[in-house]
């Protein structure tokens, strides 16, 4: 494992998803998603993607607005790095790589359920009568 790229993957994932690194770690999906991105992309293009992401993170010294601006301009456009940034966002939010569910775990850890105040259907059930109340997080 390229530890630099792995660290970049985690940090850039946090900016791409709007979730903290700790939240992402808590899903247990950092390693499998890192691997899925590695295994499904041209290594050369991916190498440039990580290089660009690392540069963005280093140059803006943690200034969130600056990082977001750079991400929008240099990672998000479809013309950049075969759309890897969008793939990473969709992976985190839906657990799907393309049209396929990556794994049982990825289905259960999809972030979209978290932002919806819900839970993945068929997993992480909230208990009898929970649906009659607003979600605990509210």
């Amino acid at each position: 494992m390229n530890t630099n790229n792995h660290a970049t993957f985690l940090t850039i994932s946090a900016y791409l998803t709007g979730f903290s690194e700790t939240d992402l770690l808590g899903t247990g999906m950092v390693d499998p998603y890192y691997a899925a991105i590695r295994d499904n992309n041209d290594p050369e293009v991916l190498g440039y993607f990580y290089q660009e992401a690392a540069t963005i993170l280093a140059d803006s010294h943690g200034d969130e607005a600056e990082i977001n601006e750079a991400i929008a301009a240099r990672l998000i456009p479809d013309s950049c790095y075969n759309g890897i940034a969008k793939t990473i966002i969709l992976l985190w939010y839906t657990g799907n790589y393309g049209n396929d569910v990556l794994s049982t775990d990825s289905y259960k850890e999809a972030l979209v359920w978290n932002v919806a105040g819900a839970h993945p259907p068929g997993a992480k059930q909230p208990g009898y009568g929970s649906w009659a109340l607003p979600p605990f997080s509210v």
Binding site: K124, Q125, P126, G127, Y128, G129, S130, L133, F136
Partner: peptide, 10 residues
Amino acid sequence: LITGVGLMYD
């Protein structure tokens, strides 16, 4: 306690 079950899952 019915609500408590939800807390247990949480």
